[in-house]
């Protein structure tokens, strides 16, 4: 099988999310991915890029950069998101409250929980000033 990897650098604005979504669609079609896999990859990128844009601490004078790559190895989709928005380790984030009643349910904190719940593997490194998140999704 020919490996068709996708790599893109995203400008630091939410309007870029539509372009990312289109990239996931193209990648999904190229690899004949099931609709659910397409959806959860789309969701993961939307949540991670949005978090970076909203909470990232980009240094003055440094161009904000978010790099996304999609590939398939050994029956798994590998998604890598790298950003220079200041060190942030999402694996240390506590999960949000998902059980309390409507009136006391906090608003927010949910995106990362969804991403972590749906990935088969989720890891974090800080390399050369970049946060690097690697997500894996089993195809079988």
């Amino acid at each position: 099988m020919i490996t068709r990897d996708f790599n893109v650098t995203v400008a630091a604005r939410v309007s870029e999310l539509r372009n990312l979504s289109a990239m996931v669609e193209t990648f999904g079609e190229a690899h004949d991915l099931p609709p659910r896999t397409n959806f959860i990859i789309n969701l993961a990128l939307e949540e991670l890029v949005t978090n970076t844009l909203v909470h990232g601490k980009f240094e003055h004078g440094v161009d904000p950069q978010i790099d996304v790559s999609l590939s398939i190895h050994d029956g798994r989709v590998i998604v890598v998101v790298q950003s220079n928005g200041g060190k942030f380790d999402p694996t240390k984030n506590t999960n949000p409250d998902t059980t309390s009643e409507l009136d006391s349910r906090p608003i927010g904190g949910l995106g990362l929980h969804l991403v972590k719940s749906q990935a088969d593997a989720f890891s974090y490194e800080f390399v050369d000033g970049f946060n690097r998140l690697t997500l894996e999704y089993n195809l079988s």
Partner: peptide, 19 residues
């Protein structure tokens, strides 16, 4: 076809408002 946590948050706000 797609909703993220940003959209779900709107529904939570709406549910609280209607309640």
């Amino acid at each position: 076809s797609f909703i993220s946590s940003s959209g779900m948050r709107v529904l939570l706000i709406g549910a609280k408002g209607v309640r």
